[in-house]
Design a binder for these strands. Structure first.
Lengths: 139, 139
DNA sequence: CGACCCGATGCGAAAGATTGTCATTCTCCT
DNA sequence: AGGAGAATGACAATCTTTCGCATCGGGTCG
């Protein structure tokens, strides 16, 4: 079991709910899931789990660096498996599709701006909202 | 009354609550206020107003382009008077201080990235979270 | 292998933010 | 001034997320 190692290395006890949640994150079609999404996938798979546990576990995973939390529009947090590289997001406001991208130029400018204002960067979030090609055509 | 004109030009009926709310946005010390903040400022000024109205009016103002809504971390929306120029934010995670900035280089890169992925940009949000100088020194 | 300890889970209740309902009030037009 | 219809206020409802607490499970030690 791959998951067990990852959880252990993150310094967390290996429990059934944690393994199942991590597994959903790894195997789901969606790369970006809300706590509710994870909950529904597990219920659909016939797994017994409490929603509160999902929130707790996802928060722990975030603290351990296993997942990233994003605040897209819509009032709820979405989680994404941390596969190493940092990246930003392009979100379609019609269909919700998410495209990931990286721009070293932007990253570099951000560091420069933070430095100018004497801020020590902890994190940053860049989200571009737009309408994707398919949604424009079907409109 | 400056406010009346702005509200009328936004295509909204000029009502007392709207004028008062716009006035708070224009005169408050803070440039970024949550609905609750606006509510508290009005109560402190002895004004009678319902919180639900604040939410409704702010949402209308947003639709009319009078204010911008931002989703900083912390689970609630903050609103800012739209003074024309778009800008992004640098937020101190310790004290909540907000610094605004603009980078034409970043804007331009964003347009290029959206174009590459065939997205028509509607909006975007760039927030850098960090620790400001004062907070680092007092730590 | 079995007992134990402490953290982890599940459930329901609670908190915080936001929106909906609906009777009453206010704006704007005549 | 009068009236149609939109806007408001009070409160309930919803949604997301967190808390409290009794119970359960994982890992360790004997």
């Amino acid at each position: 079991m791959m998951e067990n190692q990852q959880i252990k290395q993150a310094g967390l006890k290996v429990t059934l709910p944690r393994v199942k949640i991590l597994n959903v994150l790894e195997t789901s079609e969606l790369r970006h899931l809300s706590a509710e999404d994870v909950y529904k996938e597990l219920l659909a798979a016939g797994e017994e789990i409490g929603l509160a546990t999902i929130y707790r576990v996802l928060t722990q995973f975030e603290g351990a660096g296993l997942v990233c939390r994003h605040h897209f529009e819509g009032g709820q947090s979405v989680f994404e498996l941390n596969r190493g590289g940092h990246h930003d997001h392009l979100v379609c406001v019609k269909c919700g599709k998410v495209v990931e991208f990286v721009s070293e130029i932007i990253e570099e400018r951000q560091r420069a701006i933070a430095a100018e204002h004497d801020f020590q960067i902890e994190d940053h979030s860049l989200i571009i909202y737009g309408v994707c090609k398919q949604c424009r055509e079907s409109a």
